[in-house]
């Protein structure tokens, strides 16, 4: 369970409010977050694993305060970025997954086997020894996902994971994400994907503008974008 308790973010140098104090309790297995660019979606989800610290209020994951128990929280929360290139550190696919497993598996042979298994699960078994730079965008995103899932997080936060992908990869990665046995918090501009969640949050101008049924949320967001409705406070 993820709990935002009046969590807000203000830029320390400019004093600009990026996210107004927000209170949310996320218990659903599939939550989508939609909204305009620069609205505060990424800031909201980065609060979950402490990538951005809350300047007001607090965030708790399974009862753990993110500000105080950051490393423990990050072991529970996996994070998938928009651009997988920034997430991949090691030169080849298998080495990158092995890096994730360094913390949990001491024996190198065992680590190699576990990394290969993780790659097989993503359909990248035959790309294990390939240089990361030689993989396609979709394969890189799958590799980043393999690295995240290798350490078995219970929550996965995905910040626009399909934005840079073509239609085929978008469908593949999207379906894969939805099939995972974890709580998925997905920031997306893909409204079809957002509508498949159990709950959708619309963020606008640094605040929750709508929170509830995905179909209604998408309708609300479309109206908001095309000026057919005004911003309202979240229920």
């Amino acid at each position: 369970m993820i709990e935002f308790k009046d969590a807000g973010v203000t830029a320390p140098d400019t004093g600009v409010t990026i996210l107004k104090p927000t209170s949310l309790t996320l218990t659903e297995r599939r939550v989508s977050v939609i909204g305009a660019n620069g609205g505060g979606k990424s800031t909201l989800v980065r609060l979950i694993n402490g990538l951005i610290p809350a300047t007001t209020g607090s965030v708790e994951v399974d009862g753990l305060d993110v500000a105080r128990k950051g490393p423990e929280v990050r072991r529970k929360v996996g994070f998938l970025f928009t651009d997988p290139s920034a997430q991949l550190i090691m030169p080849t696919a298998i080495e990158d997954v092995m890096l994730s497993l360094r913390r949990t598996i001491k024996d190198r042979d065992e680590r190699t086997r576990a990394a290969l298994d993780a790659l097989e699960e993503m359909g990248l078994g035959d790309r294990a020894d390939v240089a990361v730079g030689s993989l396609s965008g979709g394969q890189r995103q799958l590799l980043a996902l393999a690295g995240v899932l290798a350490v078995t997080p219970s929550i996965l936060v995905a910040d626009e994971p399909t934005t840079l992908l073509d239609l085929r990869w978008r469908a593949h990665v999207g379906a894969l994400l939805r099939s995972l046995p974890v709580q998925l918090i997905e920031v997306t501009h893909d409204l079809d994907s957002a509508a498949r969640a159990e709950r959708t949050i619309v963020i606008d101008d640094g605040a929750v503008a709508f929170d509830g049924d995905p179909a209604e949320a998408v309708r609300f967001y479309r109206d908001l974008m095309f000026g057919r409705t005004t911003r309202t406070a979240a229920p």
Partner: peptide, 22 residues
């Protein structure tokens, strides 16, 4: 920009944090 993104990714993966050593 790349350095900042990479830093965030390292942080998110818990690399270099407490417990990230054999």
């Amino acid at each position: 920009g790349f350095a900042l993104e990479l830093g965030q990714a390292i942080h998110a993966r818990g690399i270099g944090e407490e417990g990230d050593q054999i």
